[in-house]
Nucleic acid binder design. Structure first.
Lengths: 156, 156
DNA sequence: ACGGAACAGTTGAACAGTCAACCAACGGGA
DNA sequence: TCCCGTTGGTTGACTGTTCAACTGTTCCGT
């Protein structure tokens, strides 16, 4: 491989592997915990949180899709499943007959209220209990830098 | 929600959302790039890298499963698909008739050699070009802290 | 007012990953 | 030696995501 590629330095490679391992393991763990003590997938939880933040616990599918960064199709399937479980309902969108709004039902909201403390505890246990204030600032800075770099690549 | 849960501080919540967004977007992007210019999924690539590191470009399924942290089942399916594409072959394991060793074929190795520079360029573009040396050290420290925290939770 | 492009959302097929059941082979006691 | 628990690996059914095709609606230029 005697080409012009700038390979990663040992420090970069180590950090990179650690990041991959940590995020993968972390998301697995959070998903397992959520599943075990609330019967929700991480994706379900994301939908619940976004809906619960919204006025009247309801939001248009397209906006929900943007906020969760789920594809339209993925969201449509996900909401259909949640509706079948009684956690979400669909309503026509006033003022735009193409639209659908998803609403978190009372049962859905109750499910979120039951799930949230455990989930936050998991996030604390695996992440923030292991970090001090400076680490949190570093994490924020690094994550933002990556997001910016990806956004910059999109523009180009 | 007037309970005893220690919710996340605004700083923690911000860092947490940024981490989730960044990792998700990053992995999506790397996967897309890899798919576009080498026809490989991120999972395929992981298998290729581990095999190429091994003596004779071959490794036992169980060891490969540990190193990639794929489940046995997932690996078995993945290797079957790669074998069908001619990138990997399966051989009986000498000395243990239960075993199978997976070998990266020449075509598989060539595929990896073709894919690697582009993949490393993506990792640079989205991650390390946006970080200085100090950031890399911070990233390493934070990722390791999370890994340790999860390992500690496993022991408990 | 009309016609086409863009938008909102759903659907079904294909695909990857998980889960549980399974078979074959190893290995350490009794 | 013979069992029996453990390990290595595969398989098939099921779940969730993606992809492409499709319906119905709105928006815009003419």
């Amino acid at each position: 491989m005697a080409d012009g590629t700038r390979w990663l330095t040992p420090e970069e490679l180590g950090a990179w592997r650690s990041l991959l391992d940590a995020t993968q393991l972390l998301l697995d763990r959070l998903g397992d915990d959520l599943e075990a003590d609330a019967g929700l997938s991480h994706a379900d939880y994301e939908v619940f949180v976004r809906l619960s933040d919204a006025e009247g616990h309801r939001m248009r599918m397209s906006e929900l899709s943007d906020r969760t960064s789920f594809s339209r199709s993925r969201l449509s399937h996900a909401v259909r499943r949640l509706e079948a479980r009684g956690f979400v309902s669909r309503e026509p969108c006033p003022g735009d007959r193409r639209g659908t709004v998803a609403r978190l039902t009372d049962a859905g909201y109750a499910q979120l209220v039951a799930a949230a403390p455990g989930h936050v505890a998991s996030v604390r246990r695996y992440v923030f209990d292991a970090l001090d204030q400076g680490d949190v600032a570093d994490l924020q800075r690094i994550a933002s830098a990556i997001l910016d770099a990806i956004a910059a690549a999109d523009d180009a």
